[in-house]
């Protein structure tokens, strides 16, 4: 898959330029569902897309689905409760694992001994991350098994309408917002299949959109209050779920300058180590990174250094 990743669109020049280059003509299918109730509040976005936006309205469709199908709504609620509890349990465990890493990192007595302990702390965190991803994937699989999305008439109708809209467009844009909601509606309405079935259709995405389309979604904000007072200086990044998997091997970190302690080399290095072998892409405002099949990563891309 060829995907163009953009940094946050506070300044929309990069998006405007990428759209003009990759999607010079025709309508542009747009997923703006990360903005939830403000999905349709898209005048500025439409302008960036040259007035050619076709809003797929995934959030509105999802809300309609919940309102019209009580059985489906119940299953959604069960899924939400399960995922929230899984995230809470994972966060409790992660907090202690990160506190151990922090304490070990602070010790400077015998560096060669501490390095081994530090590496093992990171391995323990990676194991915890895997446990969480597996548990979330199981919960989602059980949800999809129970609701049988493909067999529900309402879902099929929405999916068909969306497929028709996308088929008539020259490209697809996935914007930012709430990455959890965005990822969920992309799953519900089968966007992964639509995207991969037309691999040459240009795809531009930014911020939460870039995160959702990767193969893993990492939530991060160093400066938020840590969830418990465990002596942690920074809020640990959390695995949220497997992403849509449109591209892999790269974890995008939009707003990195605002949300990450980039000036803390130990912290940055440990984060890169934790998520390896995936590479952590720093997506600053105005940045553009074109990921192309069978091509090395772009030379100008900025990554969190693993060493």
């Amino acid at each position: 898959m060829n995907v163009t990743l953009l940094g946050p669109q506070r300044n929309v020049a990069a998006a405007r330029a990428a759209v003009a280059e990759l999607m010079p003509d025709g309508a542009i299918a747009t997923v703006n569902a990360g903005w939830r109730e403000r999905e349709s509040d898209s005048a500025e976005l439409s302008d960036v897309l040259g007035g050619r936006m076709r809003n797929l309205e995934l959030y509105r469709r999802w809300q309609q689905l919940i309102a019209e199908d009580a059985g489906y709504a119940d299953e959604e609620r069960t899924l939400t409760l399960t995922l929230n509890e899984l995230q809470s349990l994972y966060t409790i465990r992660l907090r202690h694992a990160m506190a151990a890493l922090q304490a070990v990192t602070r010790r400077r007595e015998l560096p060669q001994v501490a390095a081994s302990a530090r590496d093992d702390c990171i391995a323990a965190i990676q194991a915890l991350d895997r446990w969480h991803l597996d548990a979330v994937a199981r919960a989602r699989t059980e949800f999809y098994t129970r609701v049988r999305l493909g067999e529900r008439a309402t879902v099929a109708r929405h999916r068909s309408e969306i497929a028709d809209q996308v088929a008539g467009c020259s490209g697809l844009v996935v914007t930012g917002g709430h990455v959890g909601v965005l990822l969920h509606v992309l799953h519900v309405f089968g966007l992964a299949r639509l995207i991969t079935e037309a691999p040459h259709r240009p795809l531009i995405t930014w911020s939460a959109g870039a995160m959702a389309l990767s193969d893993r979604v990492v939530l991060f904000h160093d400066h938020l209050v840590p969830p418990e007072s465990a002596g942690l200086e920074l809020r640990p990044a959390e695995l949220f779920a497997e992403g849509l998997g449109i591209y892999s091997g790269v974890l995008p970190f939009p707003h990195a300058r605002r949300r990450l302690r980039l000036d803390d080399p130990d912290h940055v290095r440990q984060m890169a180590q934790r998520f390896s072998p995936r590479r952590c892409l720093v997506l600053l405002d105005g940045v553009r990174v074109d990921l192309r099949d069978d091509e090395p990563f772009p030379a100008g891309a900025r990554w969190l250094p693993a060493a």
Partner: peptide, 17 residues
């Protein structure tokens, strides 16, 4: 803010513009 954002944290962790 200290109390309420700790007890019922908002979605700031989930939002990326």
């Amino acid at each position: 803010r200290d109390g309420l954002s700790w007890i019922f944290p908002g979605d700031a962790l989930f939002f990326y513009e």
